[in-house]
């Protein structure tokens, strides 16, 4: 695969080199407590072409609420970058779920369901 940053640029149109790691994305993220790497840390890994970015749990925990995207002072659409990373994984067919096989579907919060549907299918 080409450089991870270029791949993200190709898929999402977002240039991760704009990030200056101010941390505002991580500070406002409602899922930050559950993440193994905060969004700016994931972006840093992408800048350094560290393939571990693709294995970060954070990219699946992201709820795509866009708080980070709205507040980013460098106008990066952070949620879109997360989506880009998930897309790379999904295209490699490493992660998919069949919503029909999910147990306790009715107990899941709707937003989680929608987010999961967008990410894993």
């Amino acid at each position: 695969m080409t450089n991870l940053a270029d791949k993200i640029l190709e898929i999402t149109g977002e240039d991760v080199y704009l990030c200056y790691f101010c941390g505002k994305c991580g500070a406002g993220c409602p899922m930050a407590d559950k993440m193994d790497h905060l969004p700016y840390q994931v972006i840093h890994m992408v800048q350094l072409n560290d393939m571990n970015a693709l294995n970060a749990k954070s990219i699946w925990i992201c709820a795509t609420c866009f708080t980070c995207s709205v507040r980013c002072p460098r106008n990066l659409d952070v949620a879109r970058i997360m989506e880009g990373l998930r897309t790379i994984k999904v295209r490699a067919q490493q992660q998919t779920i069949d919503l029909r096989k999910v147990e306790d579907l009715e107990k899941l919060p709707p937003i989680a369901l929608v987010a999961a549907g967008r990410k894993y299918t």
Partner: peptide, 21 residues
């Protein structure tokens, strides 16, 4: 080192949401 994401009022205090990068 980290940019504050938001400030909210709680009682007579201000809650600052940040991350120590």
């Amino acid at each position: 080192r980290g940019r504050v994401s938001k400030i909210v009022q709680k009682g007579d205090q201000l809650i600052v949401h940040a991350v120590d990068t």
